[in-house]
Design a protein around this nucleic acid. Structure first.
Lengths: 354, 354
DNA sequence: TCACATTCTGAATACGTATTCTTGAACGTC
DNA sequence: GACGTTCAAGAATACGTATTCAGAATGTGA
């Protein structure tokens, strides 16, 4: 019985009929058009309120050729999204930003296999007005397509490897300077007096790995003879395994730059296994400044990526591009990182070492 | 120059003109209507391919009165979503589920203040076809409204407090049995031989707190004279503070049921501060079975909520409701939980105690 | 009084699709 | 040869809105 209750929609036509005006006038009232008589306007508004009118977003979208949706496509990592606090942060900040705009967030998870279909569905079918692309791997062919289609998008990530030779092609991007961030992190360890500083990076092909390694190289240049570089998959247990073999190895580092907080926790576990005390036997600096940093009792020194600011810039620009307004500033915005120093990089024998 | 490249849309009318048929026929071909001649159909399809045609989701939505979007509204917690792995999991699983359907996920973050507006925008404006509601607090007036409007939704959470007296009102829900989960967790500690088992719950008004406390009570009934119950806000540091005062208090428990993994990590930190060894001085069992469980070197015993299964049921039902198909099974589905036993609840002196 | 600008509003149209209604032809059947 | 029947496909319409165009009413200046 109750399920038979039919959801009847109040349209502008209904409001028009009830206020003895035309549908066009109702539309104008809604748009705040000044050319409509103040009295008429008030009357119509009153009727709208009385009948609880709400414009239909579907019709409006068709007419205006705008869906009001911003797309965020994330690639499904091997073990689900669970372990990646970066995306939770990102999505959270984006929602936060969009909540003060007329736009909404449409989030999609793709695998390599479904990527093509999702692209079609989201862009060509006009489901979203614009796209936020999060790129970790260099040379993504998607970007070429988006540019070719003149589809509004911004890139969160490093465009260097991607940048089209054609200067005319608009590629707006925002990113941290990961080289600088890597340098900052490693330099902090150098300054703290460590002598055998290593870096545990993610897989080699990933831009963020490469960049931070480069920064690390710069920081230790002249301070340390040979760089100590290891790679591991992202995720806690992979990092732990690698870290165990590092700590049991010949050339044990006394400090480690680790590519993210989850991996750092893996290193922490490995250190316990290998009886290395943090920070005295092994100092750690990592990236992301997630809540994991507080899980370590002495606190994990980590690099804040200022995701909030990244999102502000990225979304702000995307909306301007969508609405065809001029975008101010550089093509590529670099958001500064900040090192949050905590116990994991502050050895108690600091002065002894120095 | 390049920005002037105008995105021209290929419509059914274009395809119709080019294949010398009517627009209606093109639509029929697209729908796979058998009443269209096979030769015509092939010809039209060929033209579609040649011109890279894609139906316009906006127009289709207006016509079919379906947006193809599923809404997920999350309340913004005090410190952002970052600390809540539950939502990251949930969103991730939902996206996963929807990726094999024609639906997409529209995620929205609200505060208490913006809740009303979002409800209007999402539902009344027909932006989404259905809603996944995640309810922690009892008696949410939103549910009444959704029911009154006959809007398709499913509830993830316990409907007991919410359930309308009117049996006819459709309220589909899926949830863990948190009483059972609480009982299971506490019983595990009883069986392990602990004598002074406490529970560190979240804020009192929250259903999940109440239910698990109730389960805890049942488990210790007859085994332990007085229940030891504490409340704290969610989040690592709040839990840590509370845990410190617990461990420094008069009646120190030898085992603690903690409401989620993040709070449990807070307890772990507190234990270090108070020189309590885990699990020998303090055993811990918590909930969510997140990746945080592996951050503790001995492993954190935790209760898997089977979020994947919850999402399967919830989304499966929601889609059937939206498409007006009969929904099978109970109004309220209870997804079982599983205790993942790890080191934090396995004292080395287990047999000594027993 | 007439020409003309101004102010408000209604009629008509378009957005791109799905569907209903109608038509035309081909094909028996009586 | 007149009359259903069936099949394929076109014409027309509707979904709910925004916008363009046109018209009525009023006021203004000569």
């Amino acid at each position: 019985m109750s399920s038979a209750k039919k959801q009847i929609r109040v349209t502008q036509r209904d409001i028009a009929r009830l206020s003895k005006v035309s549908q066009a006038t109702v539309s104008r009232v809604l748009a705040g058009d000044d050319r409509v008589d103040i009295l008429t306007s008030e009357r119509v508004k009153q009727v709208m309120r009385e009948h609880n009118y709400r414009p239909d977003v579907l019709a409006r979208s068709l007419r205006s050729r705008r869906s009001g949706l911003i797309g965020l496509v994330v690639k499904r990592p091997a073990g689900g999204l669970h372990d990646d606090p970066f995306f939770a942060n990102l999505a959270s900040e984006i929602m936060d930003f969009l909540s003060s705009t007329p736009y909404h967030l449409c989030m999609e998870m793709v695998t390599d296999r479904t990527q093509e279909a999702v692209y079609d569905e989201l862009l060509r079918a006009r489901r979203v007005d614009g796209l936020i692309l999060v790129e970790s791997e260099a040379r993504d062919e998607r970007i070429q397509r988006l540019q070719a289609d003149c589809f509004p998008f911004v890139l969160i990530g490093n465009p260097d490897e991607i940048q089209n030779a054609d200067e005319d092609d608009q590629l707006w991007s925002v990113d941290n300077d990961n080289v600088a961030a890597g340098e900052l992190a490693a330099k902090h360890l150098v300054d703290a007096g460590f002598k055998k500083i290593g870096i545990l990076a993610g897989p080699p092909a990933v831009t963020v790995s490469e960049d931070r390694i480069e920064g690390y190289r710069r920081a230790i240049a002249g301070k340390q003879d040979t760089p100590m570089i290891w790679h591991s998959d992202f995720g806690l247990s992979a990092a732990k395994d690698t870290a165990v073999s590092i700590l049991c190895g010949e050339e044990r580092p006394d400090a480690l730059v680790v590519l993210d907080d989850f991996m750092a926790m893996g290193v922490v576990l490995a250190a316990r296994v290998c009886h290395a005390k943090i920070p005295d036997d092994l100092a750690i600096v990592s990236f992301n400044d997630s809540s994991l940093c507080h899980v370590l009792d002495c606190g994990l020194t980590s690099t804040s990526l200022n995701i909030r600011e990244i999102v502000q810039v990225a979304c702000g620009r995307l909306l301007r591009i969508i609405e065809d307004k001029p975008v101010a500033g550089e093509r590529r915005v670099v958001v500064p990182t900040q090192l949050k120093v905590r116990g994991s990089s502050l050895p108690s024998r600091e002065f002894v070492k120095a």
